[in-house]
Nucleic acid binder design. Structure first.
Lengths: 146, 146
DNA sequence: CCTAATGTCTCTAGCAACTATAGCTTCAAG
DNA sequence: CTTGAAGCTATAGTTGCTAGAGACATTAGG
């Protein structure tokens, strides 16, 4: 059995984050030692690794909650899991497209800056006037973290 | 002079967001009408457009605060503005790289899912075991919004 | 066996950048 | 003159954590 610190080290997750996951019900309430400290077995370790990995892939905690409850029912169809992953892929692709446009615009800005005075600065000028932009990078939909 | 609603419409910014920007000092306190409603002139409109555009390009409010105070001093060197833009470009490039790796991994996951039962689902399986991954997408640095 | 240094406990508050709600006042149209 | 939209303030909620305070538990060394 691992203490919370060892578990965190093993999974690459900070201790308060583990307690937070428990608090929001993503991890079950841990067993406690005689002195009221949390103890974790292999199942908890796997579950935390799952969460960590899904977070690394950009899934929201809500999506992970769904994925976890799906993985608890191995005999069901995996269509739902597939749909969640596809949605995440679509999300990533859309952010990728957007970021690519941003990158182009920022590069243009930076390259054009001649390094003189603010009054002649392309960076400031372009920021003040979207019509100077080549691409349409106007914030298209709501974005998540990362 | 525009009311806050008209200003928001013109700039593509929601009304509470404008009030929020004023609250955190990104916009100056607006003039008020006899009935205590905010009124905005062209200068405020330009400033808001600047903020909006910079937000669209992914700059943080903190960076925008700096850029705005730079743009208020036209005779100074634009090196600082250039540096902020370059930092933002670097940030975008790093997120782009990360998202590209995520996309590849998600695609692999989704493609391999045969659409059977959860027990055989590649999506669930891969999430549970990072060593099944082709790329190393482990969260490398702290990420900002978008 | 005692002490000091960690580690863990709970609880609360904070971060970015808004968004939403409640309960009120003001304004513009008919 | 009335009604409905738009404005006002103030507070709380969102996501996914992170940081702090103050108290208890555990462990390594002397």
């Amino acid at each position: 059995m691992l203490t919370i610190g060892k578990l965190g080290e093993a999974a690459g997750v900070k201790v308060p984050t583990i307690r937070y996951y428990e608090q929001i019900g993503l991890l079950p309430e841990a067993e406690r030692s005689a002195g009221n400290q949390r103890l974790y077995g292999r199942k908890a370790q796997e579950r935390l690794a799952f969460i960590r990995h899904a977070r690394d892939l950009g899934f929201t905690l809500e999506a992970i909650r769904d994925l976890l409850s799906l993985s608890d029912r191995p005999d069901q169809s995996c269509a739902a899991a597939d749909a969640i992953a596809k949605a995440q892929l679509a999300e990533v692709e859309s952010r990728l497209a957007r970021l690519t446009a941003l990158k182009a615009e920022l590069e243009r800005m930076v390259v054009q800056c001649a390094g003189g005075k603010i009054a002649d600065c392309r960076v400031i000028e372009v920021l003040g006037d979207h019509s100077l932009c080549a691409t349409d990078h106007r914030h298209p939909e709501t974005e998540a973290t990362q």
